[in-house]
Simulated assay, not measured.
Amino acid sequence: MPSLEHAYACGDGRRRELSAPRLRVDTPERAGLDRTELGRLVRGVRGLTTGEHPWAAGVVVVAGRGPVIAAREAAGWAVRYGSYDPETDAGVELPPAARVPMTVDTPFDLASLTKLFTSVAAVQQIERGTLGMDARVGAYLPEFRAAAEHGITVRQLLTHTSGLRPELPLYDCADDTARLALLRAEAPSGEPGTYLYSDLNMLLLQFVLERVTGRALDALVHEGITRPLGMTATGFGPCPGAAATEDQRRPWAKADRGMLRGVVHDENAWALGGVAGHAGLFGTGPDLAVFCRTLLAGGQYGPARILGPDFVELLLTPPGLGFAVDQPWFMGELAGGGAAGHTGFTGTSLVLDPATDTFLVLLANTVHPRRRPPDSGPRAAAATRLARAVQGS
């Protein structure tokens, strides 16, 4: 277990350390990046919103190296469609005057990027000694009898090795009592210790965190991460100015909610009131760049420290605690040297690469006006351009 020599600087009166450089917008050359390759990255992102069948209605990209943001670009629309027409398999476009252009500061439904914040909140408690990495969930939540009986651990939740199935239909339960009963009774469907990506891991982790701290997850994320880092545009919804997501209707979705904007897309997170360990956060590209820069700087941004360097390393060391590590399918040529990140179902993603001190935030509303089979090719292509920009610098 790493030492506890590093203290937070979150406005709670504890020791502050020397400031780490804050992000600034500057030229590719000042970031140590090749201008030509970075230009290709930006042009490629712009092209994702064009054509008869665009990858997304709108896209935001923020990329950089060290403390320098070398690319900030928005393209397309935050709101383009009023509904989805299943007869024509196309979106019903709003009149031009009713559409909302995408901007760099448009908030997005971050979907599963929420898991990264839940994971950081958990590692903060591990650093403080209030949560044991290899402690059994049943030690904190004895009423979650199935998890307790099968010896599921905190580490297994963070690494998606608990054996829990990907999700449960909490959105079909009559009320919170029924949802909680379903979660408490859920036993692993796979062999514990083997990888099986599951939203349920982060839901259980949320309950553990709330039990050991006596604080709700949204408060833990705000007080321990977004407030000290100055991420004022990041938080759990509702978020009225966010990019629109889906015209959510059965049979393609799991609930009939209509065109969604500013309320969480994930049906289970919605059923749980919008605050969940696996989904529910809204945020912007510039805010996520701060989050990436903080981790690349060993847990510190400006005067604020949210984790000690040893615990950031613990978070990002393969297989990663909440973070995916070296996944070429969305990291492109950044993968292979310890790059870490995640994707979100609504079209969001981020990658940070400690080896080159680079980061890439690519946010898109790919589910607007309705969900499609996932395609991370554009994410991988953008990450590859960033990797080549480093190689050519």
Rank of each mutant, 00 (worst) to 15 (best):
E186W: 06
C173M: 15
A178Q: 10
H160S: 02
T159V: 11
L157A: 01
C173V: 09
E186T: 14
D172M: 09
L180N: 13
P166F: 01
G163H: 09
P169K: 08
L157C: 02
H160C: 01
S162Y: 03
Q156M: 08
R155K: 08
P169C: 11
P166R: 00
R165L: 13
A185H: 00
H160G: 01
A185L: 00
S162L: 02
Y171V: 12
A174C: 03
D172E: 14
R184E: 13
D176G: 08
R155N: 07
E167W: 14
R165S: 14
T177I: 12
L182E: 11
L164Q: 03
R184V: 07
L168F: 10
R155F: 08
Y171T: 07
R155M: 06
D176F: 06
A181Q: 14
T153N: 02
V154H: 04
L157E: 00
P166S: 02
L180W: 13
G163E: 11
A178V: 09
A187V: 08
Q156L: 03
L168H: 11
L182R: 10
T161K: 10
E167Q: 15
L182V: 10
V154A: 05
P188R: 02
R179Y: 09
Y171S: 10
A174H: 03
L164E: 03
R179I: 12
A185S: 04
G163V: 09
R184P: 08
T153H: 00
P188H: 04
D175T: 14
T153Q: 03
L158Y: 03
L164P: 00
C173Q: 15
A185Q: 01
R184S: 05
G163Q: 10
L183I: 06
R165Y: 06
D176H: 07
R184C: 12
A185D: 06
L157I: 04
L183S: 05
A178M: 05
P188Y: 05
L183G: 05
T159E: 13
R165W: 07
C173N: 09
D175P: 13
D175W: 12
D176M: 11
D172Q: 12
T153W: 00
L157T: 03
D176P: 04
Y171D: 09
T153P: 01
T161C: 10
D176R: 11
R179T: 10
Q156G: 04
Q156S: 05
L157P: 00
L157H: 00
L183Q: 06
R179V: 11
C173E: 15
A181D: 15
Y171F: 13
A174L: 07
P166M: 01
T159G: 09
A187H: 06
T177W: 08
T159F: 10
R165M: 13
L170F: 03
H160D: 01
E167Y: 15
L182W: 06
R179L: 11
